[in-house]
Write a protein that binds this DNA or RNA. Sequence first.
DNA 1: GCCGATGATGTCAGTCGCTGACATCATGGA
DNA 2: TCCATGATGTCAGCGACTGACATCATCGGC
Lengths: 191, 191
Amino acid sequence: MGAMSRWPSNPRGRLEQAAMDLFVERGYDQTTVADIAMRAGLTERTFFRHFADKREVLFYGGPVLQDRMVGAVEAAPPEAAPLTAVAAGVTAVAPMFAGRHAAARLRQSIIDSHPELQEREVAKLAHLAEALADALRARGVPDPAARLAADSGIAVFRAAFAQWVTSPAGDMRPRIDECFDEFVKIAEAVR
Amino acid sequence: MGAMSRWPSNPRGRLEQAAMDLFVERGYDQTTVADIAMRAGLTERTFFRHFADKREVLFYGGPVLQDRMVGAVEAAPPEAAPLTAVAAGVTAVAPMFAGRHAAARLRQSIIDSHPELQEREVAKLAHLAEALADALRARGVPDPAARLAADSGIAVFRAAFAQWVTSPAGDMRPRIDECFDEFVKIAEAVR
DNA sequence: GCCGATGATGTCAGTCGCTGACATCATGGA
DNA sequence: TCCATGATGTCAGCGACTGACATCATCGGC
């Protein structure tokens, strides 16, 4: 096993850092993978052993977020309504952003600077929605309700995140609650 | 429905058709852009003059759909609630799928066969959602409501489309209405 | 009917993302 | 000590994509 994260090693972290730095310094498409690897003291080939492609270096936190969110949905009481379970999933993830406001902001500015990265971001969110929908189906929620509830949860998350990053630092939780309330109001106002 | 254009020209259509054929015959990543161009009687360079990249050849109908949907939102009565306006946009687009069930099904099976294409598809939907949100903001709907209502509309559209393609041929309109009702029920059940 | 402008296409060369195959090297356990 | 293992380096190559320039067809003006 022994994957120690001492200083000289931790190649993955070094690659992530080098990539972020270079993307900020020169921009995403003025940075080659070879550049990133060189700054991290590694080779291009090694980069691709740690990340599936150039974009992925910015999205490595994804799986953790997904596991947490899906776990909270699975842990919700069986009698909870679909959207209630999804809301539990979304709020369960809020603490993961504590103290990361500056980093999230920087990361988001990079993503917003290049369509290729935005594409990957929405793909990650779609994947997350799919995992949420699967968790709901496992709770007995049929389609299309499962898909709709999952996509609704992601919509709330996206809106809350957007509010959170563009505001001065603070907790993400109240933003989620606000957006969730707003979401319900919008849906009810249609009557 | 063939409408396979006449012999002379219409290079874009020929490229689209050649790409579809080859993707079905050999699969997406066993098909090079040079293959597509050759079958269409053109060169690789010409392919990239008509489509921004290899994926785009499958997504050329996007802008039309978006214009129609956004137009319907803009045309909705000013006093209509955000989600009502969005619903008008989504339903306005249903007729565009009439008589295209088989084609849509084929296209979807190709997209589902490769992550790169799924990524592009959700990116297109995200772009559509953004356009919808802009139309709502132009109607005076503030954030995060505009974003939430737009994403909700896209969620309904996705769910309705998924129901429609996986069912025997028929009109898409009732699917949209069903999914919209289901969506409202889900949102209300949270109380 | 000729002629030059315009736009679409072909040709060529090159960069970069990404992969397979194989060599090297450090580490740790038998 | 030795060798199994995993991480890294090296090399060759494919395919997506782009810029630059040449060619060619078409068409309006003369």
